[in-house]
Design a protein around this nucleic acid. Sequence first.
DNA 1: CAAACGATTGAACAATCTTTCAATAGCTTA
DNA 2: TAAGCTATTGAAAGATTGTTCAATCGTTTG
Lengths: 204, 204
Amino acid sequence: MAETDDTGFQAAGRDDLTSRARIRNAALHQFAVKGFAGTPLRTIATEAGVAIGLIGHYFGSKEGTREAVESWIVGLFASALDRADSQSADTVADVTVRDETVAQMLAGNPLVVDYLRRQVLELPTDGMLISRLASLTMESVEAMRNAGQASSSRDRVEQVVTAMVRQLGRLFLQPLVDQVIDSFPEEEQPAIHPELRVEIKTAQ
Amino acid sequence: MAETDDTGFQAAGRDDLTSRARIRNAALHQFAVKGFAGTPLRTIATEAGVAIGLIGHYFGSKEGTREAVESWIVGLFASALDRADSQSADTVADVTVRDETVAQMLAGNPLVVDYLRRQVLELPTDGMLISRLASLTMESVEAMRNAGQASSSRDRVEQVVTAMVRQLGRLFLQPLVDQVIDSFPEEEQPAIHPELRVEIKTAQ
DNA sequence: CAAACGATTGAACAATCTTTCAATAGCTTA
DNA sequence: TAAGCTATTGAAAGATTGTTCAATCGTTTG
């Protein structure tokens, strides 16, 4: 693996990407849309424009391909948080800046949202991804506490949960709204889709 | 098909169920936990304690098995709404009673919640289930409008969306909260899981 | 009793899937 | 140029899947 990998964030023509990156992108796309079990490796190979054998060559197995996709996603979150800190005037960015930066990253990678939404359902057997993102968020919370930008009296775990629900809750639930609305004939559908609001009411 | 089918709601010993019902229950269980594509028919047969061939005999195909599961779920919602009406003093139950009755039904059938949550994510390709439940909810909304128990000035579709989000939103999002909390060592986890609140903010 | 019928089984089949691997092409380095 | 990499291919193997079907069992019906 002598070649560098793209982050998918900087603009890059489809044909400029390495085979490895194209495979990873195709896997993310298929897993997000059809699910892990519902995606044959052949489909990934076709979408990436490579031969089947190349997937095994780079990622070892189908499970290894999933791992690569998830590590890439974790990297996306990590770099978004780093960006928030570096763009902030303070040493550490506050909640608003962090949320906004993550939201922008997710808006630019809708497939990541689709993938994550699925992961939350798939049983904790192999669902390490959410746990990895939780760790990342915990680091973020710690940094904010140390900088006095987050309450130090509230429970840490609770702060992590709140942050993740704030970032992901609305995005996860949107398909419910969309599917319900789309199930009605077009002339009955409201022009503007109702806006979802998801909150956590901290236990008393 | 001379035999009657259970509703799964009244208590019934596992061994009292017909093969048909046991297959349907096993299918619901596996689809909810592993997903449709991730569930081999052999697994369903084993859990139901029958031979593979019997599934085809009763449901024709794997797709037919899914259909049977979904029809059973639709029936569960329909009978819950009927029950709400019959228990109400008025001719038509009000929103609170309906929501409460549906909530009780879902609490008694957690696998149904898991199954539905998956349906919302799995692409609308074949996902007729949400659409069927939306129709059911629309009938419910119409009944309430006619009885003067629901505003007649607001948009019908919007009322349906609101009702379904109210009934399902929190349940769908709970796994996110649980997975995040469970990803921390047990001694750090808060005693009481934070309470989720999901609302719809009607478009202005 | 005999015939008929639904319930049930498990093997067989064809299709599809993942993984493996030998072979080729292309590029770098000594 | 020769040798040694890595990238890439596509066929083959081996496992798994959904579906089909002939055969058996048990009960009901004539």
